[in-house]
Protein backbone atom coordinates (compact mmCIF):
# COMPACT_ATOMS: atom_id res chain seq x y z
CA UNK A 1 0.00 0.00 0.00
CA UNK A 2 1.44 3.40 -0.96
CA UNK A 3 1.97 5.55 2.11
CA UNK A 4 0.87 8.89 0.79
CA UNK A 5 -2.04 11.29 1.15
CA UNK A 6 -2.92 13.13 -2.02
CA UNK A 7 -5.29 16.10 -2.11
CA UNK A 8 -6.22 17.55 -5.50
CA UNK A 9 -8.03 20.88 -5.68
CA UNK A 10 -10.07 20.20 -2.55
CA UNK A 11 -12.75 22.70 -1.56
CA UNK A 12 -15.06 22.73 1.44
CA UNK A 13 -17.86 25.22 1.89
CA UNK A 14 -20.22 25.79 4.80
CA UNK A 15 -23.06 27.49 3.02
CA UNK A 16 -21.50 30.62 1.54
CA UNK A 17 -18.40 30.43 3.72
CA UNK A 18 -15.34 28.81 2.14
CA UNK A 19 -13.37 26.82 4.70
CA UNK A 20 -11.00 25.11 2.26
CA UNK A 21 -10.14 26.84 -0.98
CA UNK A 22 -8.66 24.65 -3.73
CA UNK A 23 -6.19 22.76 -1.57
CA UNK A 24 -3.66 20.56 -3.34
CA UNK A 25 -1.14 18.69 -1.23
CA UNK A 26 0.89 15.51 -1.15
CA UNK A 27 1.84 14.18 2.24
CA UNK A 28 4.48 11.47 2.52
CA UNK A 29 5.44 9.09 5.31
CA UNK A 30 6.64 10.70 8.58
CA UNK A 31 5.62 13.84 10.44
CA UNK A 32 3.83 16.52 8.53
CA UNK A 33 2.92 19.81 10.15
CA UNK A 34 -0.08 21.90 9.26
CA UNK A 35 0.35 25.37 10.65
CA UNK A 36 -2.01 28.29 10.58
CA UNK A 37 -3.83 30.84 12.69
CA UNK A 38 -7.15 30.03 14.35
CA UNK A 39 -9.90 29.79 11.76
CA UNK A 40 -7.48 28.97 8.94
CA UNK A 41 -9.32 25.73 8.09
CA UNK A 42 -6.96 23.24 9.75
CA UNK A 43 -9.65 21.45 11.77
CA UNK A 44 -11.93 21.33 8.74
CA UNK A 45 -9.15 19.71 6.73
CA UNK A 46 -8.52 17.18 9.52
CA UNK A 47 -12.21 16.30 9.64
CA UNK A 48 -12.41 15.92 5.88
CA UNK A 49 -9.41 13.57 6.00
CA UNK A 50 -11.01 11.49 8.76
CA UNK A 51 -14.26 11.33 6.76
CA UNK A 52 -16.18 13.14 9.51
CA UNK A 53 -17.01 15.87 6.99
CA UNK A 54 -17.54 15.63 3.25
CA UNK A 55 -15.49 17.72 0.86
CA UNK A 56 -17.46 19.99 -1.46
CA UNK A 57 -15.23 19.26 -4.46
CA UNK A 58 -11.83 17.89 -5.43
CA UNK A 59 -10.20 14.51 -4.91
CA UNK A 60 -8.60 12.91 -1.90
CA UNK A 61 -6.78 9.62 -1.74
CA UNK A 62 -5.41 8.22 1.51
CA UNK A 63 -2.80 5.49 0.97
CA UNK A 64 -4.46 4.75 -2.36
CA UNK A 65 -8.02 4.67 -0.94
CA UNK A 66 -10.48 7.30 -2.17
CA UNK A 67 -11.94 9.31 0.73
CA UNK A 68 -15.48 8.30 -0.27
CA UNK A 69 -14.79 4.75 0.93
CA UNK A 70 -15.55 5.73 4.50
CA UNK A 71 -15.24 2.33 6.15
CA UNK A 72 -11.86 1.61 4.59
CA UNK A 73 -10.61 5.10 5.39
CA UNK A 74 -11.61 4.69 9.03
CA UNK A 75 -9.76 1.40 9.21
CA UNK A 76 -6.45 3.05 8.20
CA UNK A 77 -6.84 6.37 10.02
CA UNK A 78 -6.35 7.10 13.71
CA UNK A 79 -7.78 10.40 14.88
CA UNK A 80 -7.19 12.53 17.92
CA UNK A 81 -9.74 15.34 17.85
CA UNK A 82 -9.02 18.82 19.19
CA UNK A 83 -11.05 18.31 22.36
CA UNK A 84 -10.67 14.58 22.91
CA UNK A 85 -12.69 13.05 25.71
CA UNK A 86 -14.32 9.75 26.59
CA UNK A 87 -16.93 8.55 29.07
CA UNK A 88 -15.62 9.93 32.36
CA UNK A 89 -16.99 7.07 34.43
CA UNK A 90 -15.00 4.46 32.53
CA UNK A 91 -11.52 3.52 33.64
CA UNK A 92 -8.64 4.20 31.26
CA UNK A 93 -8.49 0.50 30.34
CA UNK A 94 -12.27 0.21 29.89
CA UNK A 95 -12.29 3.28 27.64
CA UNK A 96 -9.51 1.85 25.50
CA UNK A 97 -11.21 -1.54 25.40
CA UNK A 98 -14.53 0.00 24.31
CA UNK A 99 -12.88 2.00 21.53
CA UNK A 100 -10.89 -1.10 20.57
CA UNK A 101 -14.16 -2.97 20.03
CA UNK A 102 -15.43 -0.10 17.88
CA UNK A 103 -12.20 -0.35 15.87
CA UNK A 104 -12.96 -4.00 15.18
CA UNK A 105 -10.19 -5.51 17.31
CA UNK A 106 -10.75 -8.96 18.74
CA UNK A 107 -10.24 -9.75 22.42
CA UNK A 108 -6.74 -11.20 21.94
CA UNK A 109 -5.58 -8.21 19.96
CA UNK A 110 -7.05 -5.77 22.51
CA UNK A 111 -5.35 -7.59 25.36
CA UNK A 112 -2.03 -7.23 23.57
CA UNK A 113 -2.38 -3.69 22.25
CA UNK A 114 -3.90 -1.84 25.19
CA UNK A 115 -1.18 -2.46 27.81
CA UNK A 116 1.45 -1.90 25.11
CA UNK A 117 0.01 1.46 24.14
CA UNK A 118 -0.66 2.57 27.70
CA UNK A 119 3.01 1.88 28.40
CA UNK A 120 4.03 3.82 25.30
CA UNK A 121 2.09 6.88 26.43
CA UNK A 122 3.16 6.39 30.03
CA UNK A 123 -0.30 5.76 31.42
CA UNK A 124 0.10 2.17 32.57
CA UNK A 125 -0.17 3.23 36.22
CA UNK A 126 -3.50 4.87 35.48
CA UNK A 127 -5.10 1.93 33.71
CA UNK A 128 -7.68 1.44 36.47
CA UNK A 129 -8.29 5.12 37.17
CA UNK A 130 -11.41 6.85 35.93
CA UNK A 131 -10.93 8.95 32.80
CA UNK A 132 -12.56 11.94 34.48
CA UNK A 133 -9.70 12.28 36.97
CA UNK A 134 -6.99 12.52 34.28
CA UNK A 135 -5.25 15.85 33.67
CA UNK A 136 -5.43 17.56 30.27
CA UNK A 137 -2.04 16.16 29.26
CA UNK A 138 -2.93 12.64 30.34
CA UNK A 139 -6.18 12.81 28.39
CA UNK A 140 -4.27 13.81 25.26
CA UNK A 141 -1.88 10.91 25.78
CA UNK A 142 -4.84 8.61 26.17
CA UNK A 143 -6.21 10.17 22.99
CA UNK A 144 -3.03 9.25 21.13
CA UNK A 145 -3.15 5.72 22.54
CA UNK A 146 -6.74 5.20 21.41
CA UNK A 147 -5.96 6.58 17.96
CA UNK A 148 -3.15 4.00 17.61
CA UNK A 149 -5.23 1.04 18.81
CA UNK A 150 -5.75 -0.44 15.35
CA UNK A 151 -2.19 0.40 14.25
CA UNK A 152 -3.30 2.91 11.59
CA UNK A 153 -1.33 3.89 8.51
CA UNK A 154 -2.25 7.51 9.09
CA UNK A 155 -2.46 9.35 12.39
CA UNK A 156 -4.23 12.69 12.43
CA UNK A 157 -3.80 14.88 15.49
CA UNK A 158 -5.61 18.17 15.80
CA UNK A 159 -4.09 20.83 18.07
CA UNK A 160 -2.75 18.24 20.49
CA UNK A 161 -0.67 20.57 22.65
CA UNK A 162 -3.14 23.43 23.11
CA UNK A 163 -3.64 24.07 26.79
CA UNK A 164 -0.80 21.81 27.96
CA UNK A 165 1.92 22.99 30.33
CA UNK A 166 5.47 23.26 28.84
CA UNK A 167 6.65 19.95 30.32
CA UNK A 168 3.63 18.02 28.98
CA UNK A 169 4.03 19.76 25.65
CA UNK A 170 7.66 18.61 25.25
CA UNK A 171 6.71 15.07 26.30
CA UNK A 172 3.88 15.04 23.81
CA UNK A 173 6.05 16.27 20.94
CA UNK A 174 8.61 13.54 21.65
CA UNK A 175 5.85 10.96 21.69
CA UNK A 176 4.60 12.09 18.29
CA UNK A 177 8.10 11.87 16.82
CA UNK A 178 8.44 8.28 18.05
CA UNK A 179 5.07 7.33 16.59
CA UNK A 180 5.91 8.85 13.20
CA UNK A 181 8.68 6.31 12.54
CA UNK A 182 6.53 4.02 10.41
CA UNK A 183 3.41 5.97 9.48
CA UNK A 184 2.12 9.30 8.28
CA UNK A 185 1.46 11.64 11.19
CA UNK A 186 -0.44 14.77 10.30
CA UNK A 187 -0.11 17.36 13.04
CA UNK A 188 -2.30 20.42 12.96
CA UNK A 189 -1.40 23.30 15.23
CA UNK A 190 -1.28 27.04 15.61
CA UNK A 191 1.72 26.74 17.92
CA UNK A 192 4.90 27.29 15.89
CA UNK A 193 7.03 25.59 18.57
CA UNK A 194 5.24 22.28 17.95
CA UNK A 195 6.21 22.34 14.29
CA UNK A 196 9.73 23.51 14.98
CA UNK A 197 10.30 20.62 17.36
CA UNK A 198 8.73 17.84 15.35
CA UNK A 199 8.29 18.42 11.61
CA UNK A 200 10.46 18.96 8.62
CA UNK A 201 7.70 18.93 6.02
CA UNK A 202 5.04 21.55 6.58
CA UNK A 203 2.19 23.46 5.02
CA UNK A 204 0.89 26.82 6.17
CA UNK A 205 -2.80 27.47 5.83
CA UNK A 206 -4.60 30.79 5.99
CA UNK A 207 -8.26 31.50 5.27
CA UNK A 208 -8.62 28.09 3.66
CA UNK A 209 -5.67 28.52 1.27
CA UNK A 210 -2.19 27.07 1.32
CA UNK A 211 0.31 29.89 1.74
CA UNK A 212 3.36 27.69 1.92
CA UNK A 213 4.30 24.09 1.24
CA UNK A 214 7.85 22.87 1.79
CA UNK A 215 10.43 22.14 4.43
CA UNK A 216 11.12 24.15 7.56
CA UNK A 217 14.60 24.93 6.21
CA UNK A 218 13.12 26.38 3.02
CA UNK A 219 10.75 28.48 5.09
CA UNK A 220 13.67 29.83 7.07
CA UNK A 221 15.55 30.60 3.87
CA UNK A 222 12.64 32.68 2.61
CA UNK A 223 12.89 34.91 5.67
CA UNK A 224 16.65 35.23 5.65
CA UNK A 225 17.80 38.85 5.65
CA UNK A 226 14.40 40.20 6.59
CA UNK A 227 14.56 39.67 10.35
CA UNK A 228 16.19 42.26 12.59
CA UNK A 229 16.93 42.63 16.26
CA UNK A 230 17.04 45.88 18.20
CA UNK A 231 16.86 47.26 21.69
CA UNK A 232 14.29 50.05 21.99
CA UNK A 233 12.77 52.07 24.80
CA UNK A 234 9.16 51.47 25.76
CA UNK A 235 8.17 54.80 24.16
CA UNK A 236 9.88 53.86 20.89
CA UNK A 237 8.30 50.41 20.95
CA UNK A 238 4.86 51.69 20.00
CA UNK A 239 6.28 53.50 16.97
CA UNK A 240 8.21 50.38 15.86
CA UNK A 241 5.11 48.23 16.30
CA UNK A 242 3.09 50.61 14.14
CA UNK A 243 5.65 50.44 11.36
CA UNK A 244 7.05 46.91 11.45
CA UNK A 245 5.77 43.42 12.09
CA UNK A 246 7.25 42.57 15.49
CA UNK A 247 7.90 38.83 15.81
CA UNK A 248 9.30 38.67 19.35
CA UNK A 249 9.89 40.78 22.45
CA UNK A 250 11.93 40.32 25.61
CA UNK A 251 11.44 42.90 28.33
CA UNK A 252 14.73 44.19 29.83
CA UNK A 253 13.88 46.77 32.47
CA UNK A 254 13.09 50.11 30.76
CA UNK A 255 14.12 48.70 27.42
CA UNK A 256 12.72 45.97 25.24
CA UNK A 257 14.69 43.58 23.05
CA UNK A 258 12.64 43.13 19.90
CA UNK A 259 12.72 41.03 16.72
CA UNK A 260 10.91 42.38 13.70
CA UNK A 261 10.42 42.06 9.97
CA UNK A 262 11.78 44.54 7.46
CA UNK A 263 10.37 43.98 3.96
CA UNK A 264 13.29 45.48 2.10
CA UNK A 265 16.15 43.10 2.73
CA UNK A 266 18.77 45.56 1.32
CA UNK A 267 18.26 48.27 3.94
CA UNK A 268 18.89 48.58 7.66
CA UNK A 269 15.59 49.85 9.13
CA UNK A 270 16.98 52.20 11.75
CA UNK A 271 20.11 52.86 13.73
CA UNK A 272 20.85 50.13 16.27
CA UNK A 273 18.90 47.44 14.37
CA UNK A 274 20.95 44.35 13.55
CA UNK A 275 20.11 41.69 10.98
CA UNK A 276 19.77 38.27 12.57
CA UNK A 277 19.09 34.58 11.78
CA UNK A 278 15.37 33.89 11.55
CA UNK A 279 13.76 31.21 13.68
CA UNK A 280 10.62 29.36 12.56
CA UNK A 281 8.31 31.78 14.36
CA UNK A 282 9.97 34.73 12.59
CA UNK A 283 9.71 32.95 9.25
CA UNK A 284 6.05 32.10 9.83
CA UNK A 285 5.17 35.66 10.81
CA UNK A 286 7.21 36.99 7.87
CA UNK A 287 5.10 34.86 5.56
CA UNK A 288 1.85 36.00 7.20
CA UNK A 289 3.01 39.63 7.01
CA UNK A 290 3.80 39.29 3.32
CA UNK A 291 0.37 37.83 2.71
CA UNK A 292 -1.28 40.73 4.52
CA UNK A 293 0.74 43.25 2.49
CA UNK A 294 -0.58 41.74 -0.76
Amino acid sequence: MEKRIILKDVCKNYGKKTALDHISLTIENGMFGLLGPNGAGKTTLMKVLTSLQPKTSGEISMCGIPIEKTKKIRSIVGYLPQDFSMYGTMSVYEGMDYLGVLSGLNKKKRKERIPELLKEVNLQEYRNKKIKILSGGMKRRLGIAQALLHDPEVLIVDEPTAGLDPEERVRFRNLLCEIAQNRIVLLSTHIVGDIEATCEEIAILKEGKILYRGTVTQLLTQAEGAIFEAEVSRIELEKVKARYCVTGMISQGRHVQIRFVQEDKTKIPFEGAVRCEPNVEDAYLYLMHQEEMR
Binding site: T50, V77, Y79, Y87, L102, G104
Partner: peptide, 22 residues
Protein backbone atom coordinates in the same frame (compact mmCIF):
# COMPACT_ATOMS: atom_id res chain seq x y z
CA UNK B 1 -26.90 11.86 24.72
CA UNK B 2 -23.98 10.21 26.54
CA UNK B 3 -21.57 10.54 23.59
CA UNK B 4 -22.36 14.21 23.25
CA UNK B 5 -22.10 14.90 26.96
CA UNK B 6 -18.80 13.05 27.17
CA UNK B 7 -17.57 14.95 24.06
CA UNK B 8 -16.86 11.55 22.54
CA UNK B 9 -18.93 11.97 19.37
CA UNK B 10 -16.00 12.58 17.06
CA UNK B 11 -13.71 9.95 18.46
CA UNK B 12 -16.46 7.32 18.27
CA UNK B 13 -17.57 8.59 14.87
CA UNK B 14 -14.06 8.15 13.49
CA UNK B 15 -13.95 4.44 14.36
CA UNK B 16 -14.38 1.64 11.85
CA UNK B 17 -17.68 0.26 13.17
CA UNK B 18 -20.69 0.88 10.93
CA UNK B 19 -23.54 3.11 12.10
CA UNK B 20 -26.03 0.25 11.67
CA UNK B 21 -24.03 -2.03 13.92
CA UNK B 22 -23.25 0.63 16.52
Amino acid sequence: VRDRRAKALEVIGSKEISSVKL
